[in-house]
């Protein structure tokens, strides 16, 4: 279900914790599984986690599937719903709002023709509202596909970024 490369990465996570505490590796393991699905998935449904993948990860690290499912549903960066090829999360919390976070969210929504929480019809972009990313000094801030933070996202910078995300 996961590539040899992803499994090797999960093994490296497991090595960080005492042998009898493999459960600690579940956060990293689910992230690795999600990243592989995001990169390989052809449709929004194939880019998120589902119970089969979660069960596979749980069995691989040797914990109960429900324990992994609990984690996948508690932390909001694990995509449990179908997601576009590029997931764009905009911070709209107070410090970001004071420097254009709300405007950035509105601008992207208009440009893509979707509201917050929606995916474009071609499955290319999902736009979400995020909570504090710990980068308020760089506002407006976007997080692309969970791992790439984009700073000072003025309308011009947004145009450029969206053009890059093909």
């Amino acid at each position: 279900m996961l590539s040899a490369e992803s499994l090797a990465k999960i093994d490296r996570e497991l090595a960080k914790y005492p042998a009898d505490q493999a459960r600690s590796a579940v956060m990293g393991a689910l992230r690795i599984a999600l990243t592989e699905r995001r990169e390989k998935g052809a449709t929004p449904e194939e880019r998120c986690l589902n119970s089969e993948v979660i069960e596979f990860v749980a069995n691989y690290i040797g914990i109960a599937p429900v324990a992994a499912y609990e984690v996948a549903t508690f932390y909001n960066m694990y995509d449990m719903k179908p997601v576009g090829k590029h997931k764009i999360t905009v911070c709209t919390n107070l410090p970001c709002a004071l420097r254009g976070g709300m405007n950035a969210a509105e601008y992207i929504g208009k440009k893509l023709g979707i509201h917050l929480g929606e995916t474009t019809a071609d499955g290319k972009f999902t736009l979400l509202e995020g909570e504090c990313m710990g980068a308020c000094g760089d506002a407006p801030v976007l997080l692309v596909n969970n791992h790439s933070m984009c700073s000072f996202m003025t309308p011009e910078a947004i145009d450029k970024k969206l053009a890059e995300l093909e």
């Binding site: 960080k16 914790y17 600690s24 956060m27 990293g28 689910l30 992230r31 508690f74 932390y75 909001n76 960066m77 694990y78 909570e131 504090c132």
Partner: peptide
């Protein structure tokens, strides 16, 4: 010493 990441929970 090791690094462990969160995944979206204040």
């Amino acid at each position: 010493l090791f690094a462990h990441h969160g995944y979206g929970a204040y």
